[in-house]
Design a protein around this nucleic acid. Structure first.
Lengths: 213, 213
DNA sequence: TAAGATATGTGATTTTTTTAACATGCCTTG
DNA sequence: CAAGGCATGTTAAAAAAATCACATATCTTA
């Protein structure tokens, strides 16, 4: 089989191109060049073309790309040509924000279950979801054929939640807890660390102020 | 001047090492090897040593690193040997979650102001903060000598908020809106896109299911 | 229909980042 | 106090990623 090895950075940018294209489409723009995409998302035109080249030829030389077509291709590539049902564990403020985050719906993600181990949170409503006890997690996953889970609990509880997710058969985990999770290789994990990017900023600010001595 | 060019990936990992070291320290562990750090955060031992080598020699050959010392060094490098006051624009669910996120406090970040353009949100309390109108933004920034702002508004309003932040003299912006911001070069921007990592997962899942046909 | 302008797709090059390998130095032990 | 084990720091090699440069193809216009 032809296993094309795509850099993760390329997939990341593809996700960003994809959203930029949606914006163009909403504004009724039908054609776009690699240069305009590059300008719009802050990369180089060559980068845009190289990224797309991993997946095929989508443009017309001398013309550019059809916005709607390219948008649909990027959706397809990213696996967004379908709906994805998700479950969230952790009904704190972060879990709440994720459950109500419109950015997910816009991309075909639907959170269909929220869970928490804290008895005082059970039964509480988030939108039209009700916070459920973790005991019900495996059955909900099975019932709705869920593939992806989101962890939004404090660091101490994250590994335990990951274990439950793995046992329940989830194949992918989006982890907001700032800890490295231990899971089998077959399970994909991606971490979103809210303070890492902030610390890149402080690193740069500290550097700058050290240079201006 | 000796301008050492540090890869951003190195800074990112440093932030992660730093938190791992904190955990070790809390557990009373005094010495650690690059291999143990690597194991704990999911990178290679050589990577750990290489990353640290950008900044100096922190270990003892044949022994390893003193946990507390290395922890303090990483803090210093990341600019975390001081407190940082932050302001957040956007008092929706995400803004709320960020204002109450303990992960920030643990790293010396303190949110001292929340702003929103939505009149219905003004005066609302988030912890002991009160949601303020955007008019007050510049004066609060000046008064508290703020360097970093966080954008937690919907995509449409993000650029406008960024403009206000730039005009108010902020030097760094952490942007949670899924759009590319246009700011002067002197202003550092880092984006946290909540759905990009999710789409890396769906990309991989889609790839896997395509291969299993 | 030929020429000019434009923008893609891609092979070659450069740059960056990661991995590997090992010399150096510290600690322990007999 | 010498020898062996061990883990760092660093140089060299490999791999990966980004950039460049241009051949190719399309559209427009005269």
């Amino acid at each position: 089989m032809k296993t094309l090895r795509v850099p993760e950075a390329t997939v990341t940018r593809l996700s960003i191109y994809s959203r930029f294209l949606e914006g163009l489409d909403r504004n009724g723009i039908t054609t776009v060049s690699s240069g305009e995409i590059a300008e719009g998302v802050g990369v180089s035109p060559a980068q845009v073309r190289k990224d797309l080249a991993y997946f095929g030829e989508f443009g017309t030389r001398g013309v550019g790309y059809n916005v709607q077509d390219l948008m649909r291709y990027t959706f397809k590539i990213l696996g967004l040509d379908r709906k994805w049902d998700l479950v969230v564990v952790g009904a704190g403020n972060l879990g709440f924000a994720l459950c109500t985050y419109h950015g997910f719906n816009m991309r075909g993600f639907h959170i269909i279950g929220v869970f928490d181990s804290d008895a005082t949170k059970l039964g509480r409503k988030i939108g039209n979801l009700e916070v459920l006890p973790l005991d019900l997690f495996p059955s909900v996953v099975k019932e709705h054929n869920i593939h992806i889970g989101i962890i939004a609990v404090p660091p101490d509880g994250a590994q335990e939640v990951a274990d439950i997710m793995v046992r329940s058969g989830l194949e992918a985990i989006l982890n907001f807890a700032p800890v490295a999770l231990n899971v089998p290789d077959k399970v994909e994990v991606r971490n979103v660390d809210l303070s890492v990017k902030l610390e890149i900023l402080t690193f740069n600010l500290a550097l700058k102020s050290a240079q201006n001595l």
